[in-house]
């Protein structure tokens, strides 16, 4: 059985002489979370807007579950919830009314509507404001209601454009929990973000874009292995500033492939050998008596960050 799909074929958008998205080809299929990464102006939001009919492509097609969004928006978006930019909610309406509006447009039967609205508002912790007018809400509160609106129809696919924007740290953590829960419910989540930690924690795959062109799309592990290699990274801190030849000494340790000095007392080491190699490296560093103060293996986020920077800076 085919799962939910998103497919861009030669998707292009030009604003005058500026090409925001250039012949983007991308097919995402199945229940998973895909992080959509790229610097400001890379074309992330423009791509998401073309998938949701906010923007018309100059060329190419954006299909959701096989349906061209331009040709049949109703059918294409029927199984898709979205949160693009930071929408404003009609200020005179309350969250209950605003979500009822969406429920009416989406055809959520009246017997389920009240329950469902309460469920999603509870999920974003806005139940206590259910009958207050949204015009007085803070940006973070509005964003919570927007997330609730995207979740309301319980869609197969969620397109999220930097969903944590405007949220406090608790809100960011809550968004992460929601996305992880949706993954367990077999949804396809396609999410643009600047927060590499967020993507690394939540996403199975990553698509990277810059200057409107897709640079990479694969699982996070495959993309990072391809770009920064399978070698692992570790950051070490020293008790005192290192002398001039320490870099060479560190590079001579078996398994170490690259040494980068990050400041007077910190180095990043790239090494091979996986967990066993890491254990041996720690032992070698202790034996080398270099005044080792800290030994911090790089997280998948650090590897993703390294990958991101290499791809974006054209170093790959």
């Amino acid at each position: 059985m085919t799962g939910p799909t998103l497919e861009a074929t030669n998707l292009t958008k030009q604003f005058g002489s500026f090409t925001a998205v250039h012949q983007l080809n991308l097919r995402v299929e199945g229940a998973k979370c895909v992080g959509f990464l790229g610097p400001n102006g890379a074309g992330k939001t423009t791509t998401l807007k073309m998938f949701t009919n906010f923007i018309h492509p100059t060329a190419g097609t954006a299909r959701i579950n096989g349906v061209d969004v331009m040709e049949d928006k109703r059918r294409a978006l029927e199984e898709c919830g979205s949160l693009i930019e930071t929408p404003e909610i009609y200020p005179a309406l309350t969250p209950r009314e605003a979500l009822s509006y969406i429920a009416d447009l989406r055809g959520i039967p009246s017997r389920d509507r009240t329950r469902r609205i309460k469920e999603v508002l509870d999920e974003v912790r806005m139940t206590e404001w259910i009958d207050a007018r949204t015009g007085k809400f803070s940006k973070g509160m509005k964003q919570r209601v927007n997330i609730a609106a995207a979740l309301l129809p319980d869609p197969q696919i969620l397109l999220l454009d930097e969903p944590s924007t405007g949220l406090d740290p608790r809100g960011v953590a809550e968004v992460r929990d929601i996305v992880l829960a949706l993954k367990r419910q077999q949804r396809l989540i396609f999410m643009s973000s600047h927060l590499l930690g967020e993507v690394s924690d939540m996403c199975d795959e990553v698509a990277m874009i810059d200057h409107g062109q897709l640079l990479a799309y694969d699982t996070i592990e495959n993309v990072t292995n391809r770009v920064v290699g399978e070698a692992d990274l570790v950051e070490i801190g020293l008790a005192a500033a290192a002398d001039g030849n320490l870099e060479a000494r560190l590079g001579a340790i078996p398994g170490v492939t690259l040494v980068t000095r990050t400041d007077a007392r910190k180095f990043t080491l790239r090494f091979r050998g996986g967990p066993a190699g890491q254990q041996k490296l720690l032992a070698d560093l202790v034996n080398a008596q270099i005044g080792l103060l800290s030994f911090t293996p790089a997280t998948s986020m650090a590897r993703l960050e390294d990958t991101y920077l290499k791809l974006i800076q054209g170093g790959y």
Partner: peptide, 8 residues
């Protein structure tokens, strides 16, 4: 942005 992303 609240309204137009729906299947309408």
């Amino acid at each position: 942005y609240f309204l137009f992303g729906n299947p309408v």
